[in-house]
């Protein structure tokens, strides 16, 4: 459905993406995970034909992204920061514009507003919406046209946990309907929860990719056992024979308050691979 082969992109003085390759099968949620400035938005722009690139090739819906036709475009839904809404028009009228362009029946407008929980704000001007509601209005615009492929650029960044959950629910619902979804995020929990496959992007290079739990399993050497001692100290031990001996000794001494194991998360994997935190600006 979405294929990328050695995509490379430079702005005048600086390489922003190098050798990006992946293949997203139909009906999957693919997460591009990376800190701010990694090149996520740039890649979405390339894949949706909004930006030219220097090397490589990209296909979407079996078509070269450089030659997307009008009817191809109608099967692609895009949500990104750089897309605006008509602030003075109501939520309903905002969607109406696109319902007309895409020849979507009028009844779909209210249906979609209900889906994203904006039915009570249908008549309110978009300028009166909170940030979370605005994101949901933009999602509604994408979902209303029933696209086959959906691109979501940081759909939950800066939103409260409640709204994030709602949006996750809607995204998973769209997957059930057979959509292929490409999303970017710098929230690893979100990626682990939603995505079938993730790619970790750092400074324009994919440093690892695969199913979230598979990536974490590969970094199993990161697995640690943490002992909380009665003295108040924490002891971190790797999975090893020596650790087992140490633990049983501490247990015999009855100095252990609690034991838990800490497993690698996408966050710690990313940190190990790049020396960078995913959410360093937050």
């Amino acid at each position: 459905m979405i294929q990328c082969n050695g995509i490379t992109k430079s702005y005048t003085d600086k390489k922003v993406l190098s050798g990006i390759s992946f293949d997203i099968p139909d009906g999957q949620i693919f997460g591009l995970l990376g800190p701010s400035g990694a090149g996520k938005t740039t890649l979405i722009k390339i894949l949706t034909g909004q930006l030219t690139f220097d090397e490589g090739s990209a296909m979407i819906l079996q078509k070269n992204v450089k030659h997307l036709s009008g009817s191809d475009r109608k099967k692609i839904g895009i949500m990104m920061d750089q897309f605006g809404v008509y602030e003075r028009l109501s939520c309903y009228d905002n969607l109406k514009v696109f319902a007309d362009i895409y020849s979507v029946p009028k009844s779909r407008i209210m249906e979609t507003l209900k889906l994203v929980g904006l039915e009570d704000s249908a008549r309110k001007p978009a300028s009166s919406l909170s940030k979370g509601m605005l994101v949901r209005l933009q999602l509604a615009r994408v979902f209303m046209i029933s696209p086959d492929v959906i691109f979501l650029d940081e759909p939950t960044t800066g939103l409260d946990p409640m709204t994030q959950k709602q949006i996750h629910r809607i995204i998973l619902d769209k997957k059930k309907h057979g959509c292929t979804i490409f999303l970017t995020t710098h929230n690893m929990e979100e990626a682990a929860k939603l995505c079938d496959t993730v790619a970790l992007l750092n400074e324009g290079v994919i440093v690892d990719s695969g199913a979230p739990d598979e990536i974490c399993r590969r970094f199993n050497h990161q697995k640690k056992i943490v002992l909380h001692l009665k003295s108040g100290d924490d002891v971190e031990l790797p999975h090893s024979k020596e650790s087992a001996e140490k633990i049983s000794k501490l247990l015999e001494e009855e100095s252990v308050e609690a034991i838990h194991s800490s497993e690698p998360t996408l966050e710690t994997v990313f940190l190990e691979l790049t020396g960078r935190k995913l959410e360093e600006d937050n």
Binding site: Q50, G70, F83, G84, Y86, E87, I101
Partner: peptide, 13 residues
């Protein structure tokens, strides 16, 4: 300025 034109263009207007 408000980036609504970009959305129209991406919608094949």
């Amino acid at each position: 300025e408000k980036n609504t034109l970009r959305v129209l263009m991406m919608s094949n207007v």
